[in-house]
Computed example of a mutant assay.
Amino acid sequence: MTVLAESPARSGPDGAPGGGRRLVDLLLRARELSIFGALVVLVVATTIANPRFLSEQGVKDIFLNASILVLLAVGQTIVVVTRNIDLSVGSVVGLVAFLVGSFVSGTETNLLVAVVLGVGIGLACGLVNGLLVSFCRVPALVVTLGTLYVIQGLQYRIAQGEQISASEVPDGILSLGTGGVLGVPYLPIITVVVMLLVGYYLRSYSSGREFYAIGSSPEAARLAGIPIRRRVLTAYLVSGALAGLAGVLWLARFGTVVADAANGWELTVVSAVVVGGVAITGGVGTVYGAALGALLLTTIGSVLVVLKVNSFWQQAITGVLLLLAISVDRLLELRVARALKSRTRHSADAPGAPGAAKAGAGTVTKGKDS
């Protein structure tokens, strides 16, 4: 008897069956909505306690402060979904801000030149990280922690205790951090455009979905013919380039740059990404969720300042949110695994399924032999 097997279910970007992909998307959407809800509750409660919190300048400050963090979170998301991490982004921001500031100091350098220089430095740092992780196969944690300290040492050596003051930076660059369009500052506009472009690429292009496939199952991705090394290298290049752009925006935003600019931001960026629903184990998450996580952490910092609470609590709250996010990721992972297992079992037991047909054929054969 001939048995016709059913075609396999369509796979999602992480290699899960179509039903599993839909379940993951549903859970991610619920996660992002919960972050947005928490953000709304936080803002409303703070506004009740201090009505000046939602003043026009207060809202602008929140979005300006969040812009650079969101930009770094977008780049970090691409790296984390491939089961890697980039701890050097904060150091890259500081290095780029100081080098570009030194380059344009006392000149009338064009803004485009400053942006190209900053992105180029970030790309160089990302290239070193990407080559060591993807082609030399050194663990990402070790590589990026090492480059973090190397870049910091290089930055202190170049600075030699000096600083870049806002009076030395050309007005064309400073206007990027202070100006805007129709009352909306340039920095949030740039960040939103980058976020939408990266999010659309990851969602709509097969090469973008391959990043998720690598994070979901590197072995399956390799068997499927996905160029894992090139994709991981690309992830670090994008992260480095966005960190370089963030360094230029840092210079435009603050004007004054010291040797330890953005020091410690790497952990804040990772926290924002994980809180935003990007699984630290890879394969799951969106840049939109990471952006919401960054906005939530920035808002918490602003709320504590408005309520005159010790800044220590910001770090404590960030740590608690990070632990909660990792715990939720683990619970969601187990839930998805159980759901997929249940779907597979029900499909195998259903009438007409390949397993059921084979079992029926075996029973008929046994009857003839007896």
Score class of each variant (00 low, 15 high):
Glu266Trp: 01
Gly153Lys: 02
Gly277Leu: 05
Gly15Phe: 00
Glu210Val: 09
Val93Ser: 03
Cys136Arg: 15
Arg345Thr: 10
Val193Asn: 10
Tyr149Ile: 15
Ile317Lys: 08
Arg83Phe: 02
Gln160Lys: 14
Pro227Gln: 07
Ala262Ser: 06
Ala353Met: 03
Trp265Glu: 08
Ser67Met: 03
Leu54His: 06
Gln163Cys: 04
Leu245Val: 01
Asp369Ala: 13
Val128Gly: 03
Ala348Asp: 05
Leu251Gly: 10
Pro170Gly: 00
Lys358Ala: 11
Phe98Pro: 04
Arg230His: 13
Gly118Trp: 00
Ser11Ile: 10
Gln163Phe: 08
Gly180Ala: 06
Leu197Phe: 14
Gly283Lys: 03
Ser302Gln: 13
Thr281Val: 12
Val119Pro: 04
Glu333Phe: 12
Thr144His: 06
Cys136Ala: 15
Ala262Cys: 02
Leu340Gly: 09
Asn263His: 14
Gly208Trp: 08
Leu95Thr: 03
Ala261Lys: 01
Leu69Val: 11
Glu333Tyr: 12
Trp313Gly: 10
Pro185Thr: 10
Leu39His: 10
Leu249His: 02
Val169Ile: 00
Phe63Leu: 12
Asn129Ala: 03
Gly255Phe: 01
Ala291His: 02
Glu219Lys: 11
Leu182Cys: 13
Arg343Asn: 03
Ala166Glu: 12
Asp25Phe: 13
Leu176Gly: 03
Thr47His: 08
Ala66Met: 05
Val119Ile: 15
Val93Phe: 07
Tyr212Asn: 06
Ile48Lys: 11
Ser370Val: 13
Thr82Cys: 12
Val336Met: 03
Leu304Thr: 05
Gly153Glu: 01
Ala97Ser: 10
Tyr200His: 15
Thr286Asn: 02
Arg231Thr: 05
Ser271Trp: 00
Glu56Gln: 14
Asn129Gln: 04
Ile326Thr: 13
Lys341Ile: 06
Ala38Ser: 10
Leu42Lys: 10
Phe63Arg: 04
Val364Lys: 04
Ala259Cys: 02
Leu332Ile: 04
Ser370His: 10
Ile164Arg: 01
Leu69Gly: 09
Leu296His: 03
Ser175Trp: 15
Tyr186Asp: 07
Ile151Gly: 02
Val80Pro: 00
Val24Glu: 10
Gly244Met: 06
Ala261Ile: 00
Ala246Met: 04
Gly183Glu: 08
Lys358Trp: 15
Ala159Leu: 00
Arg10Cys: 09
Val232Glu: 01
Arg22His: 14
Ile317Val: 13
Ala316Arg: 09
Val275Ala: 03
Leu202Gly: 03
Ser105Val: 07
Val81Asn: 01
Gly293Asn: 03
Gly285Met: 03
Leu131Gln: 05
Ile62Asn: 06
Arg22Tyr: 13
Pro170Ser: 01
Val81Ala: 02
Ala66Thr: 06
Ala262Thr: 01
Ala166Trp: 09
Thr281Arg: 14
Gly301Ser: 09
Leu71Val: 09
Ser206Met: 11
Leu141Met: 05
Ala220Thr: 08
Ser11Pro: 07
Val273Ile: 02
Thr77Phe: 01
Ser7Trp: 10
Gln152Met: 14
Phe98Thr: 05
Ser105Ala: 15
Ile190Leu: 15
Glu32Pro: 09
Val59Asp: 04
Ser67Asp: 05
Ser347Asn: 07
Ala114Arg: 00
Leu99Val: 15
Ala124Val: 13
Thr191Phe: 12
Ala350His: 01
Gly240Met: 01
Val143Phe: 14
Gly215Phe: 02
Ser302Ala: 15
Ile62Cys: 07
Leu145Lys: 04
Phe312Ala: 14
Leu69Asp: 11
Gly247Pro: 02
